[in-house]
Nucleic acid binder design. Sequence first.
DNA 1: AATGTTAGATACAGTTATGACTCTTAAATT
DNA 2: AATTTAAGAGTCATAACTGTATCTAACATT
Lengths: 214, 214
Amino acid sequence: MPSKEISTNRPGSGRTPRPATRRRGTQLEVALLDAAWAELTEVGYSAFTMEGVATRAKTSRAVLYRRWSNRSSLAIAAIRRQTKLAVVDIPDTGTLRDDVLALLRHASARFGEVAGVFSFLIADHFNETGMSAAVLRERALAGEPTAWQIVLDRAVARGEIDPDVLSPRIASLPLDLVRHDVIMNRSSVPDKTLVEIVDRIFLPLVFADRPRRP
Amino acid sequence: MPSKEISTNRPGSGRTPRPATRRRGTQLEVALLDAAWAELTEVGYSAFTMEGVATRAKTSRAVLYRRWSNRSSLAIAAIRRQTKLAVVDIPDTGTLRDDVLALLRHASARFGEVAGVFSFLIADHFNETGMSAAVLRERALAGEPTAWQIVLDRAVARGEIDPDVLSPRIASLPLDLVRHDVIMNRSSVPDKTLVEIVDRIFLPLVFADRPRRP
DNA sequence: AATGTTAGATACAGTTATGACTCTTAAATT
DNA sequence: AATTTAAGAGTCATAACTGTATCTAACATT
């Protein structure tokens, strides 16, 4: 059977009509990471394979292995890239409440999209490396002040809130709750819930010692 | 090579000194489920295999397959058993704060179990069924009032808190935050954090309209 | 004591992914 | 134009797990 079609093996002339172009360098790497991200969001980490990514990216596994030695590295790289890409335009409505709500709505919608990726947060990689979702998040956001932080800073600058009552835990509370909700329900958070988080939990804590806003 | 050691294959006389006892019936089944639970909490669902469970239980896969046809059935059975077993003894210190703290400490200490169960909930099985962790949790707790609910009810009965300010979201807030923390950090929650959640977030919200406690 | 059930060991075929390796050739570099 | 790099196609050995099956001896039942 090895004598079948001897040396008609020339690529381009064989049964597989290969595209005449080859991606290189950054262009290729971006394509690979995008494919990896798409794979992650669609099939989840548990079914995330080098083979699947290679197929989707229309390349071979070798190209992937040259850059990432295993699937968890690739997954992390894809997540990193995606979090960098996801630039939020920062709301500036003039009130803390509306700024915060705008960001939560955005976060909820976005978390909802990538809910499948959260499977990654639990999976084997963290068992091996001892890394956690929190660590990954910190690294991904390293340096850059988040939109969230900027919105809070502005509220402090306006004199709307007292920086002393804004402990890190209270500051991150709304986003934490939205994230928790998404993880538990595997879907974006109803707007009613977002409003409740802001009006019944976050703002009362932030304005605890002050008279209520007008 | 098949003629090597013909018929010295008698178990008990071979190279493997097998234990002379055999578990049966309920005793065996309990051992299997315990092994499955241990495996689930330690390696997570993505690395949860019939083979791993069998090895841990010191039995063969056939014994597992006779009872559960695949790993998700086995995982579900193990989780079911555990949720039945895990009876929390309900603290009754006389104050809401200490009761709540006791329950949070208990929940935090069992973080590994949370992580194990979550790794299952989030894995592929649920991608297909569309079920969410929140739904499954409700089902698991169906009927039975939780220790958490009982503690809150007692505080209401003592007149310590006003049932009207205790919306479902605020009521579940401390547990939600602990769960979120466990998921994000893959470890138990520092006691300092638990105290902060109770004293800086939960109690201020619950006692919002009242004078501070003595 | 005889009989039936089944735990537990072992083997096997089939599937899927890994990771290393060829080889040709498109694209970049010189 | 000549040379170097590496994309992309493909092969192969290895490993892990699945699900089924076979066999024996330890237990329960009679």
